[in-house]
Amino acid sequence: MPSLFFALLSEAKPWIQKTKVTPLSHPGKFRIYQNESTFIIITGPGKIAMALAVSEFASLLSKETRNQMKIWNLGIAGSNDPETKIGDFFWIHKVRDYASRKDYYPERILSSTYHKEKNLTTFDRPISKVQTDNRFQVIDEGELKSISLVDMEASGFFEAASLYFPLENIAIGKQISDFLEGKFCKENQVEEMIESILDPLYEEWITPLPWTREDLLETKIWPEVLLQLSHFRLTETMKHDLKKSLRFFHLRNPNAPIPSPDLGFSQTIKSKSDLKQFLEDWKEKLHV
């Protein structure tokens, strides 16, 4: 059963009509729709609202259900790339949070009708190249040189989703709606754009996840790592972060051996800061 997150009702409306989902009665804040095989969630704009909605939704599900659930965030995005045009759709393979400067790496969609990919930067406010009104944050040309697509939700979505769902189940896709001119799209324009890409994406969205093979990370790699590091006192946070890095490497290199940590350095660990440095050095190898 897949789940699909939108910030705006205008983004979600074509999907709601296509799937014939109905509102789910629940004690939470966010609008959740469902039918017998799918969920659609509308969060409202902004990365905080998106992260809270993901967390609220995840709390309604068992861990077993979450492990088998495809979870996507789709919606519109502004573009600073002159080679793109209105209506173009891209899968996102890197998200940068502008405020925190943190980077996130959604899993790549390898067999989609839409095969193009872009980087995305998430801002706290709508972005414009020119001053129009105070609802927009103006970004100068110098900063814009390193920016391709922009939105207000993706970093919140991915950071929250990665806490509850396997990384390989998470994907982000964005459709170009504007070129940062400092004006908002009308609701009917958004609906028409989303409608234009709905059918191919719908077929991909309802296709079950292909994870039929044994999860080697869970059954073999991670237990071996824990055994190897059993003489260290890793905190739960350390374990969580290291496991995410191991999964990142394993997903992109399923047939390659996991890079070994610096065991020579491990013999000299005398403090918590030494242990943190040991883990950071190892995670750096995993993200090459």
Rank of each mutant, 00 (worst) to 15 (best):
L4M: 09
L4I: 12
F5V: 02
F6Y: 10
F6D: 01
F6L: 07
F6N: 03
F6Q: 05
A7E: 04
A7L: 08
L8G: 02
L8Q: 09
L8F: 13
L9D: 04
L9H: 09
L9K: 07
S10R: 08
S10E: 13
S10M: 11
E11P: 04
E11F: 09
E11R: 10
A12S: 10
A12N: 06
K13A: 10
K13D: 08
P14H: 07
P14C: 08
P14T: 11
P14D: 04
P14L: 06
W15Q: 03
I16C: 10
I16F: 06
I16G: 00
Q17G: 11
Q17S: 15
Q17F: 14
T19H: 09
T19P: 00
T19S: 14
K20F: 05
K20R: 15
V21T: 15
V21A: 11
V21N: 02
V21S: 05
T22S: 12
T22E: 13
T22R: 12
P23I: 12
L24V: 13
L24C: 11
L24A: 06
L24E: 08
L24T: 05
S25A: 15
S25K: 14
S25Q: 14
P27V: 11
P27C: 10
P27M: 09
G28L: 05
G28W: 00
K29E: 08
F30C: 04
F30G: 02
R31L: 11
R31C: 05
I32N: 06
Y33Q: 09
Y33M: 11
Y33G: 01
Q34P: 01
Q34N: 14
N35L: 09
N35S: 15
N35G: 09
N35Q: 08
E36F: 08
E36V: 05
E36W: 05
S37D: 12
S37N: 12
S37P: 00
S37W: 10
S37Y: 12
T38D: 07
T38L: 12
T38M: 12
T38K: 07
T38I: 14
T38V: 13
F39S: 03
I40S: 00
I40P: 00
I41D: 00
I41N: 00
I41T: 02
I42M: 02
I42D: 00
T43R: 02
G44T: 01
G44E: 00
P45A: 10
P45Y: 07
P45W: 07
P45T: 06
G46M: 05
G46E: 04
K47D: 04
K47H: 10
K47T: 01
